[in-house]
Design a protein around this nucleic acid. Sequence first.
RNA 1: GGAGUUGGCCAGACAGUCGCUCUGAAUCUUGCAUUCAGGGAGGAAAGUCCGGGCUCCACAGGACAGAGUGCCAGGUAACGCCUGGGGGGCGUGAGCCUACGGAAAGUGCAGCAGAAAAUAAACCGCCGAAAGGUAAGGGUGAAAUGGUGCGGUAAGAGCGCACCGCGUGUUCUGGUAACAGACGCGGCUAGGUAAACCCCACUCGGAGCAAGACCAAAUAGGGGAACAUUAUGUGUGGUCCGCACUGUUCCCGGGUAGGUUGCUUGAGGUGUGCGGUGACGCACAUCCCAGAUGAAUGACUGUUCACGACAGAACCCGGCUUAUCGGCCAACUCCCACU
RNA 2: GCCCCGGUAGCUCAGCUGGAUAGAGCGUCCCCCUCCUAAGGGGAAGGCCAGAGGUUCGAAUCCUCUUCGGGGCA
Length: 118
Amino acid sequence: MCRARLQKHAKLLKAVEFDRVFDKSVRSSDRYFTVLASPNELTYPRLGLAISKRRVRLAVGRNRLKRLVRENFRLTELECCADYVVMAGPQAAHANNRELLSALEKHWKILKQKCASF
RNA sequence: GGAGUUGGCCAGACAGUCGCUCUGAAUCUUGCAUUCAGGGAGGAAAGUCCGGGCUCCACAGGACAGAGUGCCAGGUAACGCCUGGGGGGCGUGAGCCUACGGAAAGUGCAGCAGAAAAUAAACCGCCGAAAGGUAAGGGUGAAAUGGUGCGGUAAGAGCGCACCGCGUGUUCUGGUAACAGACGCGGCUAGGUAAACCCCACUCGGAGCAAGACCAAAUAGGGGAACAUUAUGUGUGGUCCGCACUGUUCCCGGGUAGGUUGCUUGAGGUGUGCGGUGACGCACAUCCCAGAUGAAUGACUGUUCACGACAGAACCCGGCUUAUCGGCCAACUCCCACU
RNA sequence: GCCCCGGUAGCUCAGCUGGAUAGAGCGUCCCCCUCCUAAGGGGAAGGCCAGAGGUUCGAAUCCUCUUCGGGGCA
């Protein structure tokens, strides 16, 4: 089910899908990221990215962040099938890759527990 | 060897594993499914400061308004860009910088200081008995009505002369020209400011790929109300003309969500030869080199080095400007040492 | 992607047809008034006019380039 791949159907593409997550979700945040999760009816988790220009000024930085999150999402075996939206925090632009990856690991764990009790 | 100037090039490399996007081929479970092969960010992709292509508005037309450019010649699809030349300024030099038309078309402006700030006036001074003459001297100021010397005079003054500066010429020489030089003339007038209004010359229609074209679930192929009667309205920015279309306004509905296309072969790159001082042009050969659309190039590991800056295509080109760790190459200049 | 605006005292704004002291209100500090406070009156401090370069004798003002902030597009 959760193979180490990331294809188009595993991404949130439409405004409607994003609205659903923003509307009703559990969240976990620190100074690097805010991650929202909302259980879906599908058999696989989906990822949406919301990296605003306000948080990360340069296009290079935004692309780097998105790649990093996608890569980590792909490699992590998420057991509960939900729609996730990752938003950049205030310190995300200044952190290095190692810090960001460890922060993401933490968020997945926290959300796994929260989703179970949802 | 040191210091410097100009021009050009590169933007870590290699290997492995996993992953993304596009193209081609194969396989069948016809799904954007799997496998294989190949392509996959920049010198600035940036700022959006200019110029074009392309698309729609009329085939992009006329007048005014408005905006821009501004020594000369050339290059170019075009430019506010580039090349060569001229004038001016800086540097010992190689070189660099330069919004560099017109103030004898007109209008405006110049605080404080200063006698006086734009038109010939006179506060002190100088001369003179006085009337008056004078602009040589005078603190100022960004700017004060040519400068130096000699003569001259009551004192002075282009009043006269020499040199320099300035202006000027149906003049001559060189140059396509800007301009430079020579010669003659003028005793000197015509001060500054045009990134103040302005004048002159040249250029510019408007908008922008969210342009534009097509498909299209649901709903609908219309319904209702009011007003006006040949001038008005609409058509992308201002006014008039001209052109095209034709009732107008309001309410409900629709025009929507979504998808496809535009979307990459182009004023293209590379090499050779020829023309040109050069920008560049011409000919031949050869290559296909990103096309995403919630937005693709990354992560991890190893080796190595100078330990990697600024930074991410979004319709496409030509420039300009700004950011930037460093490295390499070529030509030239100055200084020191040696031969 | 494209097209427009703006940046002046701690805050909100004037000044932007160049001329020398950059002004107003609120706020801050000091004094007066009051038994004390508020209100009121008087006074003071606080600005490299977002940054850099240019035009000019002189720039907050004109021109160019950066930087930061805001708005619009069917």
